[in-house]
Design a protein around this nucleic acid. Structure first.
Lengths: 129, 129
DNA sequence: TCGACGTATGAAGAGTTCTGCAGATGTGCA
DNA sequence: TGCACATCTGCAGAACTCTTCATACGTCGA
């Protein structure tokens, strides 16, 4: 199912074919791009991002997560399900409680970086608030 | 406009109020979370991500970007407009050509990291293809 | 000045995503 | 066993996103 790029055969004119070819050589596979975009997409929702920031410090149960993010518990559960499906978070069940934790090192790094960048940007542009 | 978290006054029961409060203290402002999620959201579309990966090495014109990503030129232009609006890319105009470049250090780092992680993951899970 | 070209834009339709509601599941306690 | 509780899930409506089509804009060469 790979899109064969069709560079040579289509009517698209290229301005700098060498650069295009070089870029294509460096470009990850379609599947990898889609997978990566998926991860970024998970972080692209403010609620989910807040959820993940909350989990940076350790596990929390659903109702605490709902309280932190200001979401309903249903919405929280839905969001956590998505994150779970992508193996970004994992669950530990204790009785009727469910404790979630951040379980993806790459995502943790991305969230950490984002928070750090946020603080840094705040320091640079304090007038922005 | 800060959401005052309303932790104490609402009916939501908390399992670990101390942790919740600590997490809230560390949580960036609502606006920062939304801004950060916006950036991740921009990277959350495979086409846009491809566009940005293509721009890692330097500027390219719209038609070359369209060729690299396999998008129509119209779709490419729309996507670039969005990225431009968020100051992720910038344009240099030369006659009727428009050369775009990646103009946000943070986004560049995120895309770089993602590509690196992709390659690393491929090396670990070669069976995944 | 005219036409071709590269790019930009607006509108519309298809597709996707998110939330709340209602109800289900499974656990703990009396 | 029966009830309360914490969480999960399917569904449906609302909201958003992305692409295409058609067209507009500015530039270049004849």
């Amino acid at each position: 199912m790979q899109t064969p790029a069709a560079i040579d055969s289509c009517t698209v004119r290229l301005v700098d074919p060498e650069r295009v070819e070089a870029v294509n050589a460096r470009m990850p596979s379609e599947q990898d791009v889609v997978d990566t975009a998926d991860v970024f997409g998970l972080l692209g929702d403010p609620r989910r991002l807040k959820l993940l920031v909350a989990l940076l410090d350790g596990e929390l149960c659903v109702c605490d997560l709902a309280a932190v993010t200001g979401m309903s518990e249903s919405a929280t559960s839905h969001a956590l399900r998505l994150l779970r499906a992508h193996r970004v978070v994992s669950v530990r069940r204790d009785g009727r409680m469910a404790y979630y934790r951040l379980d993806d090192a790459h995502v943790r790094m991305l969230v950490d970086l984002a928070v750090a960048h946020t603080e840094h940007t705040d320091a640079i542009h304090p007038e922005r608030g």
